[in-house]
Amino acid sequence: MNNIIEVRNLVKQFELTSKLGLQTHCVKAVNGVSFDVPEGETLGLVGESGCGKTTTGKLILRLVKPTSGEIYLEGKDINKISKKEMRRIRKDIQVVFQNPYAALDPKMTVADILSEPLSIHRIVFKYDYDKEVKRLLNLVGLSEKDAKKFPHEFSGGQRQRIGIARAIATRPKFIICDEPVSALDVSVQSQILNLLNDLQKELKVSYLFIAHGLNVIRHMSDKVGVMYLGKIVEIGRVEDIFNNPMHPYTKVLLNSAPIPDPTIIRERQAIKGEVPSPITPPSGCSFHPRCNIAMEICKNKSPELIKINEGHKAACHFCSAE
């Protein structure tokens, strides 16, 4: 199967200068991330807040310029192309943001919001804008009459549907879903997730699904990448990650997810300590201060992603020992 997106050693550093300009700190928001997203599949990125998931998404969209690394869209490095060509390629990469209340321009009607990408990329003729807007609204489960309304006249779930309609307007090949259901009620979350699944089957689009809810990731993803402090610590098929997690952080993360069955009793594995500051990350393995099985080598040497089995990799010295 071909990969629609390939990311290689992506790094993004932000420089923070103190108020008087005397000290400059470097924050490695994304620190050597590599993954592939096959055509028609979903890669889920999961991790704590501040681990670099959203920054990774913005780097792929080129909303933020990477410090180093390559991003390939159908074999083409999008970091090396001109701005003009990038604008053309943006037709193929779209985004659905987390906050449906802020992601829609409050001064534009739904028709204006949906016809804007049609006019930028000339998807249809000008005379067909209305027809295409109605088609998109029907596709996401909204009424044609909603085209003339403003965003503030809709609920959160409806606004997210409009955001999804806007994303699929350009008939993209790849959509980055940055926590698209985090701001919604649980009952609405399932509707949006099912809509995304249906659209994927119908339109053969690939997703990078960013979330911190494990149940959502499990439902949506074919592959899962677990991020910690700017790095991918484990990546593999969803069955491998959830049934046979290898990295200590992945194990603790899965253990902390509540099970909706009070009869099941399990031993809780708490993560000790706090998330380290990305300005002064720990030496060696970034998880070692909080890991229950940290060894001396973990403090000195940063582990590489090691193949566990086909498609499953983990970055832990213990995994290589196994």
Partner: peptide
Amino acid sequence: NMDYVKVAMGKGCS
């Protein structure tokens, strides 16, 4: 700083 401007950038708006 609003998300809808970032979306517009992501759409390819000049």
